[in-house]
Structures are given as C-alpha cells and as structure tokens.
Design a protein around this nucleic acid. Sequence first.
DNA 1: ACGCTTTGTTAATGACCGTTAACGCGTATG
DNA 2: CATACGCGTTAACGGTCATTAACAAAGCGT
Lengths: 192, 192
Amino acid sequence: MSTRAAAPTRREQILREAARLFAERGFHGVGVDEIGAAVGISGPGLYRHFAGKDAMLAELLVGISERLLTGGRRRVEEAGGNPREVLTSLVEGHIDFALDDRALITLHDRELDRLREADRKLVRQLQRQYVELWVAVVRELHPEVGETEVRVCVHAVFGLLNSTPHLAVLGRDATESLLRRLADGAFGALSG
Amino acid sequence: MSTRAAAPTRREQILREAARLFAERGFHGVGVDEIGAAVGISGPGLYRHFAGKDAMLAELLVGISERLLTGGRRRVEEAGGNPREVLTSLVEGHIDFALDDRALITLHDRELDRLREADRKLVRQLQRQYVELWVAVVRELHPEVGETEVRVCVHAVFGLLNSTPHLAVLGRDATESLLRRLADGAFGALSG
DNA sequence: ACGCTTTGTTAATGACCGTTAACGCGTATG
DNA sequence: CATACGCGTTAACGGTCATTAACAAAGCGT
C-alpha cells in the first residue's frame, strides 16, 4: 500500500471547502451553490452527500470538538503525571490545531449558535470537557489560584492561541515557538 | 444642566440594539424587523434613520475603530515617554473597551468582511494604525525582538483580551486585573 | 388654523436561497 | 443483458428578507 494519504472522498472534499467558505463569509453568507461550485458540482448535488446545509456545519463543529478533546485526553495520558509537561503538550497540540485547521478553529467559536439545539448541546459539552482538561492541569500547577480565575485564564489563552487565523506572516515553526512562549508567559503570570 | 448622560437618541438606541443582535446571531442572521422590534418600532421604520442594514454595520465598525484609535493615541500622549507606562495604559484602555462594549469587540473582528469595499478599507486602515501604536511601544520595550514577531505578539494579546466576550463570570475589577496580569505575562515572555 | 417636517405605519415588490422533484447516465453486480 | 444504485443535472417551489411605496399622525413655527 502507498504511504501517501488516500484520495479524499467527496464528502471530505465538500467538508473542507464548506469550512473554508463558512470561515470566510459566515454560515449565512455562503450559499449551497457556492459550496457545490467549490468542489465542481452544482448546488443541489450536495444533497446526495448531506441532509442539508445545517448538517455540514454540524458535522464540522462536532468533528473538531471531538478531535480537540480526544487529542487533549491522549496528551494528558501520554505525558504522565508531570503537570508542567502535560500543559506544554496541551499547548503544543492546540497550536498545531490552530495552525493546521485555521478555518475550523474560526468556525468553532463563531458559528456555534447556528446549530440545532441538539448539536449545539453536544458541541458545548465537548468544548466544556476540553476546557476542564486544561483547568485541571493548570490548577495542579497553581493550587493557590481560584478555579474561576483559572478558567478565565484558560479561555484567555485559547483566545491568544486562536488569534493565528488573522495572520500567516511568520514561518510555521517560528509562529509555533512564539505562541508557545506567549502562552507560557500568560500562565506564568497566574501566580506571579 | 444635569450631570447624568442625556437620553439616547433613537439612532443611538438602534445602533446599540443592532450591535447586540449582530454579535449574537451574525449580520446575516438578524433581520431588520428584529432590530426594529428591539427598539419598539417595526422593520421599515428603521429606514428613517439609516440608509440600510449595511449602513448600520458600517457605522458600528467605523465608530469602534475610531474610538479605539483615538483612545489609544490619547493614552500614548498622556503617558509621556515611558514605554512601560504607555503599554500599561494601552492594555487598560483595551480591557475597558472589551468589558464595556463586548458586542462591538465581537463584531470588530467577526463581521468586517460584510462591509462594502470603501468602508472595509477605512476600518482596516484604522485597525492597522491602532496596531502600529502598540507595535511601536512594544518595540521600544523589546528592541532586540523582530518587528514581525512583535506584530504577531500584539495580535495574540488582542486575542487574549478580546476573549472576554465568552464569559462574564468573574467580577468586573477582578477580570480587569487578571487580564492585565496575563497580558503583562505574555509581553514579558517576548524576550524571555 | 395651516402647512411642513419628522417619524411612524402597513402593503407590495423583487431578489435570493435552501430544498425537493424529476430525470439521465455510467457502472458493477447478479 | 438487465437492473439497481450512486452521483449528477436542471427546473420549480416556497419562504425569507431587504427595500420601497403610499399613506397617516403628531409637533411646531408662522
């Protein structure tokens, strides 16, 4: 078998283009015809692959939330008991995500409210579990800081890391190491 | 004359509600009837005050960009030559803004692309000048760091400070002081 | 009292858009 | 070879929505 990635299925192709367009112009700002055109078919042809426009957004947001959470859990396990190393690994994973899937990160906190009740609830639950992962680790590192403050801090660092979508000017590695330092600095200021 | 603020004009009333609704559900996600209902008149009545829905968004985004820039410039002048104090003042001003006008901060980096070419260009120019204000100060404090890195750092700190919209759980003063510390920590890590 | 401006109203218009209907074509399967 | 299915197409439907038209009432200077 080949070592290269398999050709993307049509579904995946559609999801990628939809993510890009949704991130660029907002969920309500892009029509199904545009999404179709982006993958070489036209408008209603999408309905052979998805139940509707909503379903595409739902699959994108649920997918990214699940990937973030499972990735985070894996890193918590792998990095053993040392909270310092765990946090470093979580930051690294989040940065990778933000740099590799910029469109998804953008959608993640921008278009959540366009989901049906059930999907929105699911995504929010996954997001909350992901945050709790971080909060638990940071609390181990700063036991003297209140839980609420830690939670705000974690959200703020997410904001810091997710700011990458707005720029792509520095090289990938340089951006990654800079963001790592900035996040470290912010966390370090928690008990300073 | 009274020391209290004057009653808001209808225009201001409309702008405030429009900002809230746009931030909640996105520009394309809210209809003019909703905006009208929020101020007690109905749909088309808005056209006595604004040329159209686009004009409301434009006025909101241009207004906020101008206020950020002029506020920043004032602080740079007032804080004299000490870069450390200037940066502290800029951070404080930005936090005040983020906490007092959460809806506007959200719109500011979320709905820029829904503007007509001319307005978008103006807003971007104002935003750029605001960023340059920060970059100049930070470069004075960290002369050994490259300009691009500084710019990325400034954007990242904006992301950190603007993350407040997502939570209102901590008290106002506690949030402000926490954000100040986190921003300081991030900037401090620039030459760490 | 009169007419002008301001600020509303409701009804209509026209565009756009998500979705469904109806149909066609290749291809693998039995 | 037939046939069923996957994957498209174009045309039509229905609803939503921004915007305009036409009209009304209230304040106000003269």
